[in-house]
Design a binder for these strands. Structure first.
Lengths: 125, 125
DNA sequence: ACCCGGCTTTCACGGTTTTTTCACGGTCCG
DNA sequence: CGGACCGTGAAAAAACCGTGAAAGCCGGGT
């Protein structure tokens, strides 16, 4: 097999202010700001980076290893539960802000998937 | 300001993310994700690996020994029913997600064959 | 220097989910 | 009938995760 060359040309370096949306969440990485229905959430640095990392890849399953590399840097050591702990923290804050949405889904053995999901407040059945 | 050029050179066949299709199934091995008509299926690691192994060789009959080597690693010991059990689990989940297709076909004495097949839900008669 | 408070890391327990294994019951022949 | 083969529920064992809380870090204020 040969090589693969990928060339990306961006019209300026100046980052078009990245803004991520998910459900009624609005995430502004540059600013370190998260809005839930307009209301600002108070997240720590780790919480924020973790949220951003997942939101950037929403809909896909991301392994703990990937998340650790992206947010913490370096390799996830076996037995290190940092990612889980912060997912838990994040879930709490999101739950508090937006009680009827689930954002972070666990895929046992694979990792986590971020995807806003309407709650069954919609009265199924 | 000018432009920003990013060049990436990969030494081997670029990891085009492998994606397998079968009927209305979409399988993304890298991510451990399966979509059935867009909806994410929830599979365990074994279920997923088994599905991927079969989908990679769809249309062919694969022996239990082959499947075991590929998914579990090591040799299938006589009397070990793991493959059958997981085929059963997989059939259930696929059936639930896509009621009018059969994917996994048994070839007694030989093994299993994976191939999407429209069911007669189509109302013949 | 000392204390305080917030953030991060680590530890540990307990609940869940997955994987493995067992066993019973069908089916398809000769 | 008897044996090989397969489907599958369920128990047992193992792996995996959620989370409260202890412990470590660090900067700011007094």
């Amino acid at each position: 097999m040969g090589v693969c060359i990928v060339v990306a040309v961006y019209p300026e370096s100046p980052e078009l202010p990245e803004i991520l949306y998910a459900g009624e969440l609005e995430i502004r990485p540059e600013e370190g700001l998260v809005l839930a229905t307009g209301q600002a959430l108070t997240l720590s640095v780790r919480e924020f980076e973790l949220l951003a990392a997942m939101a950037r890849r929403q809909g896909t399953i991301i392994s703990r290893g990937d998340l650790y590399r992206t947010v913490w840097g370096g390799e996830l050591r076996p037995g290190d539960r940092s990612v889980d702990v912060y997912v838990s923290k994040l879930r709490n804050k999101l739950e508090t802000a937006l009680p009827d949405r689930r954002f972070i889904h666990t895929h046992p053995g694979f990792g986590y998937r971020f995807q806003p999901q309407p709650s069954r407040n919609v009265h199924i059945e």
